[in-house]
Design a protein around this nucleic acid. Structure first.
Lengths: 130, 130
DNA sequence: CTTGACATTGACACCAATGTCAAAGTTTAG
DNA sequence: CTAAACTTTGACATTGGTGTCAATGTCAAG
């Protein structure tokens, strides 16, 4: 598929897709005419990249995480101790973010639940209003 | 306490503390000499603000969440339906981020666990069950 | 009184993530 | 064949979060 469809499906602008590529986060092949060509899996990958970036991870870190994701598929990965330590540090950072966001999530849920607006909560939980 | 101590305790620069204030996220009182004066609770509040911002929430959103946090303390809060709907939307956004980050967390954990670097993982683990 | 640490405001600077626009080539529908 | 819709690259603009510097004020300790 081409960039327009990919972007639409992933829910971001084509501009960002190209930006991610420039940052080394994706490497689409090219058609004879020079158009970028994406696989179906790339929709997910790109959406995931966007999600991480929106969660405050810098592209450089996102890149590492994505690489790791590919590496995990392999049988017996390994890495120098130093790398492992850096990853552990990043892991801690991510866990902090999760904790922070979780708390806010609880706060908002709590608030909505207590303002007789359980209706809205229920709606949002099931389908996707816009 | 004054801004220097607050910043140190909260783990950010004084520059950021002032920036947060400018964005309406905190409202310290002033001493006679013009110095900002913070309460002990503000350390937590500021650390929390910083955490949310690092998690990708724009200051405007952080502000709302913090206001909510204060409001939740009240007995019988209430808000117009429109507001509740916007909050629900934000809640969804936050949940998405959490999902994204959680997946990355699992990936990294997994990776570290499988690269005989369980050592590092254990070291970094002191806290954070969930 | 002087010095050093900390505060104040305001300005300028930087980076990363995005938007937007322009000029040119490609594909597709009518 | 033409027009609309897409794509390419490249450049410029913007925004939000930060760092940093400068000039000035406050205060505690020697």
């Amino acid at each position: 598929m081409r960039i327009g469809e990919l972007a639409r499906d992933a829910g971001i602008s084509t501009r960002l897709v190209r930006y991610y590529e420039q940052q080394g986060l994706i490497a689409p092949s090219r058609q004879a005419n020079g158009y970028r060509s994406y696989a179906d899996d790339d929709v997910d990958r790109v959406a995931r990249i966007a999600g991480l970036i929106q969660s405050g991870l810098p592209t450089k870190l996102v890149k590492e995480v994505m690489n790791l994701e590919d590496a995990v598929a392999e049988a017996r990965p390994s890495c120098p101790r130093a790398v492992a330590e850096r990853l552990a540090a990043e892991l801690a950072g991510i866990e902090e973010r999760i904790a922070c966001l979780s708390r806010s999530r609880d706060t908002i849920r709590d608030y909505l639940a207590r303002t007789e607006h359980a209706v809205v909560l229920a709606e949002a939980a099931g389908d996707r209003p816009d």
